[in-house]
């Protein structure tokens, strides 16, 4: 009897490992930028290209940086939620319009609504690289001191908004 216990134990360990592996999402790469200062940039605004914006201007408030593009299908999925959320005026949402064409981006916001306090244009995607963006849409929660506290990869769902983003935002604002 005892000689079967070892193979059984090894089998069970393997089952646990594989079982845990199945519940992980390989597309979600933990960002090394969480709890680090948000990389600085200076980019032109989408609606007023003559005005620029850098993250340091947001110091003192908690804000969201949402990476979006008109060519991004998943952004369409999260957009209505973002528009609805922006009406509650919980915090400023800044859009990082990633590798987009200005007319396309403007039209997209006209068509689907504009949840952003303002958007900035990252036409060549350099700022995206600095933020480790690899799957648009992505959303960063940035605190009063300009430190990234959370990164959402992929669209924000009602569940993520209720159970992750909002509690975190309240804690950071409180």
């Amino acid at each position: 009897m005892k000689r079967f216990l070892w193979p059984l134990a090894i089998f069970l360990i393997l089952v646990v490992f594989l079982g845990v592996g199945l519940t992980l999402n390989p597309r979600e790469v933990p960002s090394p930028l969480v709890d680090k200062p948000a990389p600085s940039f200076t980019l032109a605004r989408l609606h007023h290209p003559e005005r620029s914006m850098s993250p340091s201007e947001m110091a003192g408030q908690v804000w969201l940086l949402n990476v979006w593009a008109s060519w991004c299908v998943s952004c369409r999925q999260e957009h209505p939620l973002l528009v609805q959320f922006s009406k509650a005026n919980v915090l400023p949402i800044v859009g990082l319009n990633y590798k987009d064409q200005r007319p396309d981006a403007l039209k997209w916001l006209d068509d689907f609504g504009n949840p952003y306090s303002f958007s900035v244009m990252d036409t060549d995607g350099k700022v995206g690289i600095d933020y480790g963006v690899y799957g648009v849409p992505e959303t960063f929660v940035i605190d009063r001191n300009g430190v990234i506290r959370y990164k959402q990869i992929g669209p924000i769902t009602p569940d993520v908004l209720q159970n992750k983003l909002l509690p975190m935002i309240r804690k950071l604002q409180g």
Binding site: V29, P30, S31, P32, L33, I129, D130, Y131, G132, Y134
Partner: peptide, 8 residues
Amino acid sequence: LTHRYGDF
């Protein structure tokens, strides 16, 4: 690169 995307 690892600074931005991690050891991944």
